[in-house]
């Protein structure tokens, strides 16, 4: 069995752990202290936006890995 697919699963796991850390430690407690009286809904929207950016980066990285695995499998 090719170790690359196991590595792919392992990478997904690490990305989930790291993503969880970023959400709980950075994005969750985020407050725009310098801007007075910001609407909580707007703040939540900003946090959702940041989480979506994280998901986009996550999917982008995994797509690159997937393409690399498939091409290397076909070539070998």
């Amino acid at each position: 069995m090719d170790v690359k697919i196991y590595s792919f699963i392992f990478t997904m796991w690490i990305l989930m752990l790291v993503g969880g850390g970023l959400i709980t430690l950075i994005i969750g407690p985020l407050s725009l202290g310098s801007i007075e009286g910001i609407d909580p809904i707007i703040l939540s929207g900003i946090k959702i936006g940041l989480a979506l950016v994280l998901i986009f980066i996550w999917v982008f990285v995994l797509t690159k890995i997937k393409n690399w695995i498939f091409k290397s499998q076909v070539k070998s």
Partner: peptide
């Protein structure tokens, strides 16, 4: 499935076993 057989053709039983092995790995994680 296509990723698993990209290198070499496999029988249906072999592919099923490989997928279940991958699931065991993720179950341990």
């Amino acid at each position: 499935v296509r990723l698993l057989i990209a290198k070499n053709p496999l029988s249906e039983k072999q592919i099923s076993n490989e997928v279940l092995k991958l699931t065991m790995f993720s179950g341990v994680l």
